[in-house]
Design a protein around this nucleic acid. Structure first.
Lengths: 358, 358
DNA sequence: TTGAAAGCGCTAACAA
DNA sequence: TTGTTAGCGCTTTCAA
């Protein structure tokens, strides 16, 4: 006999089963929905018996409250957005990582958005994030320079720029203290007995280049040393530029530097390579310090390269802390510069005495 | 006279204004909520007049539908999670970037989670993501090897492992075709006239090492060339190992290779450095090819290093495509290997003729 | 063409 | 101690 009803239209696709709801728990535990809520959120007073029964049933069927529904009610989504106007890279990464950890501990999830230098994409992402009712926004960048502020954003939405600064300085911005980092490097070189220190760095359109140069110049003059104009070389952020700059400083020169402060580790590594190829001993004749503490570079250099660490993880952690505070209602604005740290490796060991010796 | 009611408790904190709701639009446009919904979603039939009025009002007050509420209704959150059991690094990044772009185009946002080798943190993240009712999950890793599957996950939740494989092979996994990539490199070296090709690579506990070695060995034997056991050197993924391996292969040897296939670009660069320091011309005497096409390494090498590109962006894009398909109900499982590409640079230019010449 | 209302899953205030 | 219910903001069906 023929089937009276049409055959069930069986999908070849896997139908995703609906997640259990609080209603399911209530039915199975034979209590009301309100009771389940109380039991699971441990708020109202409830008999221990009922509570444990509800908890058991919930665990059995793998019940997990729907955050979407909760958020709708609490008008707090427990999510934040992080948007990069440049793709996530070497600098952004440690920041995001630390930030993520910090926020995860508070139960806040992160939406990751990348708008590679495309304002339209950025706008689109912001829109989407606002639709998702994020509780806060973090803006990062590949370089710490100023950028046009994101927006427009609803008033009161906590926003933090990390490794990035809004041109209008209206929001909180967390960046490394480049100038202080440079000072650390120079002070260290001076302490190691170096007296003529050159600075090989990147393009001057980078604020970091200007700030590090300032730190270099100030630290030198405070130590009574001269910062000669010819000892400052601005070029590309590359190993090749490091090598070229060494050629400029050393080839056919009677007076040469005994210390090199490089604007990043690639330049530093190029410089070390160039010095070695000239038979100039590092650190005996010339000490070299880089910037970024990018271990791929610092540890592959021969000898390993001392470098200034921007403590980007700390920057990320601080961003997380601040964002949480701001979500709780605190206000903050302006640029905050967090300290760098010097990591000493062989390339800048003192010439006169072993490290640790008097 | 004293104020009868207590002074308004003014918070020093910025109170975030509630976002406008559909109700606000309805009130201001003097229509019903249902009408607003119809007008904005362009579905039901409506007078053009009403529609445009609603749209205008919505724009004026900056109304943006609350995705949370929408999701609650549609039981689709338009979000996916991406979780890395290792922090997001050099390999994961291009994948995530491409994936993000792919999904953003569909209006899907990404939750980024990092559980650095901590199963408890991973579990916690998964929990959170399930609470947020993600529509899909992507698992990535710093290396493409097998890992214990994430979970338990609700049946039917689309899951893709990218640059990572679940040990149980129950889910879809997208990884680069390491073996094919190695073949490309070897074929290229052979085409360039090289006859004795050594393979310097990383630790054998990496599946990639074993697969690339297989590709190397097979490509050689298919070309009628011998893969000598002594020409296969497994060590660390470092420049230093590249240099050491060259010492082993060349120092005091009568018979030396004329081609070097390196397991990654750091090894390749170390090898090039070591060859140059021995006065062995690259590519004239020895051609070198690396793996990863990490431009920091390939372009800083002297000469620039040819390298196999794993097309991680393509991997990410494909993951995005597949994830969307799976969210739409498609099923997929098993390991899928995507092709690599060879990027030729000076380090492997043919010795007998200029490239492009017959 | 428009409005009213149920319901998505949850919380919290109030009633029993 | 437990149950009932309004409502978070939205979509959609049904009625007007």
């Amino acid at each position: 006999m023929t089937t009276p009803k049409p055959p069930a239209t069986e999908q070849p696709t896997l139908r995703r089963e609906a997640a259990p709801t609080i209603r399911d728990v209530a039915r199975l535990a034979d209590v009301s929905i309100g009771t389940v809520s109380k039991a699971l959120n441990a708020n109202g007073r409830l008999s221990a018996e009922t509570r444990s029964k509800v908890i058991r049933v919930a665990a059995e069927i793998g019940y997990r409250p729907n955050d979407l529904a909760q958020s709708l009610h609490r008008s707090k989504s427990m999510t934040v957005g992080i948007i990069s106007n440049d793709s996530f890279g070497r600098f952004t990464l440690p920041i995001v990582e630390a930030l993520e950890q910090q926020l995860a501990d508070e139960g806040i999830a992160i939406f990751m958005c990348n708008a590679t230098d495309d304002p339209a994409r950025e706008r689109q992402h912001i829109d989407q994030l606002l639709g998702k009712r994020i509780d806060g926004l973090v803006v990062t960048s590949r370089r710490a320079d100023e950028r046009s502020p994101v927006g427009p954003l609803p008033a009161g939405l906590p926003v933090i720029y990390v490794y990035s600064q809004p041109a209008d300085h209206a929001a909180l911005s967390l960046v490394p203290d480049d100038e202080g980092g440079a000072r650390l490097a120079i002070q260290h070189l001076i302490d190691g007995g170096r007296r003529r220190i050159a600075h090989i760095t990147g393009p001057e359109r980078f604020e970091a280049v200007r700030l590090r140069h300032r730190g270099y110049a100030n630290a030198l003059s405070e130590a009574g040393l001269k910062a000669r104009a010819s000892d400052y070389l601005s070029g590309a952020w590359s190993e090749q530029w490091g090598r070229e700059a060494v050629a400029k400083l050393f080839d056919g020169k009677a007076q040469v530097p005994d210390g090199l402060f490089c604007g990043n580790d690639q330049i530093g590594r190029g410089a070390i390579d160039a010095l070695r190829e000239r038979g100039i001993a590092v650190p005996e004749s010339v000490a070299v310090v880089g910037f970024d503490n990018w271990n791929i570079m610092t540890e592959a250099a021969r000898p390993p390269l001392s470098s200034v660490d921007m403590n980007l993880s700390a920057l990320g952690r601080e961003a997380g802390r601040m964002l949480i505070a701001m979500i709780d209602g605190e206000r903050a604005a302006g640029t905050r510069r967090l300290p760098c740290t010097l990591i000493v490796r062989e390339s800048s060991h003192p010439v006169t005495r072993q490290p640790g010796q008097l």
